[in-house]
Design a binder for these strands. Structure first.
Lengths: 337, 337
DNA sequence: ATGTGTTTTGCAAACGTTTGAATTTTTTTG
DNA sequence: CAAAAAAATTCAAACGTTTGCAAAACACAT
């Protein structure tokens, strides 16, 4: 593909390239007539400015890299949508990589992005104890870096997150008020996903607040975050008295729910189940799943706005922390008994 | 972020930039010693080649644009994964835009990508009767263009697709053999999604082959492709005798299934349900859903390989058509009565 | 006409690479 | 030891922009 350049226009109109450049950028020093003549010609000739040339000139790529832990839930899709919404409107390209909850893959993707010289990174770490030095190196190079969703925990950085602890508290409170006494927590590994620690904290606080005993036997940490991990967690609970489950994500909740059902237990009568994520998957399972629904699209938007702000403001050393609101959606899976 | 350049290395080592350039590119005309010295210095100084400079030089962006109709199913995620797998290994950036099944949005995204001067486009059209001229314009500009999944139908272009007709035939055959006599087809609009036309063709062929009467009253074209559209289709079937449903996608199938359940109909006893897409969503609903599962990751890979081939071979005017295999996965939703 | 001031345009360098051609250095040869 | 050949290095232009500064064009007063 051969594109029309500023030079072509200059040659055509017998003016200099600088004049064309200025005219197209509406520079005040160009005579109105000339400007209009040039802009008309540009349009007519199908000129489109070559972004790589200007990027070279300005020493940037107008690209931001996004690392997500997974890409196959509507949750991820919505966040990405939000990011792209802001970025495309600000003329930034977005490149996405999924780590698949694998820290090595995450690291590898970061490496690729660094080679692309992206102007900034929006990341959702899969494991808060991994790749820390790498992210620090990125920070030292003064490449803008924003985290979202997963709490970075052991690294100071701007971030866009949900108030896990509070939301978990309210959700568990809801279960308690619905008459549940033995509420299990199916969480992600505490050494991997810090949000899990926080939701557990909220969970425990709610129990305490309502005078329910905390039973470590019904607090499970899963291997991964797939449906099968939810199911596996249920197996571990097999011999424990349980009348409700609060799962770390919708995926875990759905995995758990289906296992419970196949064991012949009725939901919500025998066991209430609640998740966290607020994807529309909650509405396609039966019974429909109660969940905490962060404003995912907005989360993406905020993260994108933040990174763009940091890119345009290299001096700004802020570690701004944006809290995204989340709604608790009550559905059949936690109906009162 | 200030990066180390070839010039910095040149200055440091008191050689010319061309020597550095050639040394780093392993040019044979550079003395071994010099080359090694330069490469060592480059590494030590943390040099990373500036892709925007080389891209400018070569008149390309090393970016390929992907247009998907939706991004919130595991289907899309897997295809994208496949695309990225190939592209990142070939040093191409991938930028993705979702049209949300809206032709205007699709067009808008294409516009943005054109402004980014991507080297090629991989697209899944949301409506084969919309934006045709626009895609033709892209072809006229000789920008490599590959379609996947949705049949482009009224435009000649390289594509990576599934044999819809045949696969639909076999799936419906399976329903018939399981004893179903009144098999409904819930398809996407025939004027919008050509695959729907083809699957309908396969559906009809299977009926014919087994001597079942074709009943147009139980062939529904939906508005959109969401769960709600599946449910709405079931409502339209309300007064028809139906003991099986073949839905155009898993999403439609799940929407239909849930509506049937809420109407008190048992699946598969009263109505068998089958979908098409092969996402893992089929396994989280109950009963688990029979479906046709195209090799999604592979589909993405093939599409990416094709586009890269075309980029590297501008002369190649091929309209290669790659057929991706698909497996029929039999699950509880279509068990024999 | 001449000079002054303003407006408009052009020159040339720069961003970080690559690469054909020219130049320098080294090696080989008679 | 000089000349020729080969090898290694450098020069300079190019990719498509932007932009400080110089130059040209014009307006107006004298």
């Amino acid at each position: 593909m051969k594109y029309v350049t500023i030079k072509d226009i200059a040659r055509e109109l017998l003016v200099s390239v600088s004049t064309v450049s200025r005219a197209l950028n509406n520079d005040a020093s160009i005579r109105k007539e000339t400007r209009e003549k040039i802009q008309a010609a540009a349009k007519q000739m199908g000129y489109v400015p070559n972004p790589v040339a200007t990027n070279l000139k300005y020493g940037r790529t107008k690209t931001i890299g996004v690392i997500v832990p997974e890409m196959s839930t509507p949750y991820a899709a919505l966040v990405i949508d939000g990011i792209q919404d802001i970025c495309y409107h600000n003329n930034y390209k977005v490149i996405i990589a999924s780590s698949g909850e694998d820290a090595d893959k995450e690291r590898e993707s970061l490496d690729i992005m660094m080679q692309f010289m992206i102007d900034g990174i929006i990341a959702c770490r899969c494991d808060y104890n991994k790749n820390t030095e790498f992210y620090q190196k990125i920070q030292e190079q003064h490449i803008p870096l924003v985290f979202y969703d997963r709490i970075p925990h052991n690294i100071e950085a701007p971030q866009v997150v949900v108030d896990d602890e509070t939301k978990a508290f309210f959700l568990v409170e809801h279960l308690i008020r619905a008459g549940r006494k033995n509420i299990a927590f199916i969480g992600a590994n505490f050494d991997t996903v810090y949000n899990s620690v926080l939701r557990h904290k909220g969970y425990r606080a709610a129990l305490e607040r309502y005078g329910l005993e905390y039973n470590p036997n019904i607090v499970i940490q899963t291997e991964g975050l797939n449906y099968s991990d939810g199911a596996a967690a249920v197996d571990k609970l097999r011999h424990e008295k349980t009348d409700a489950i609060f799962a770390f994500t919708d995926t875990l909740a759905i995995g758990a729910m289906n296992r419970l059902k196949s064991m012949g237990r009725n939901i919500p009568r025998d066991v209430a189940v609640a998740g966290f994520s607020g994807t529309n998957l909650c509405t396609i399972v039966s019974p429909q799943l109660t969940t905490v629904e962060p404003r995912q699209f907005e989360m993406g938007q905020r993260a994108a706005e933040l990174i763009i702000k940091l890119i345009n403001n290299p001096s700004l050393q802020s570690n701004e922390k944006v809290i995204i609101d989340a709604d608790i959606i009550y559905r059949d899976s936690t109906e009162e008994t």
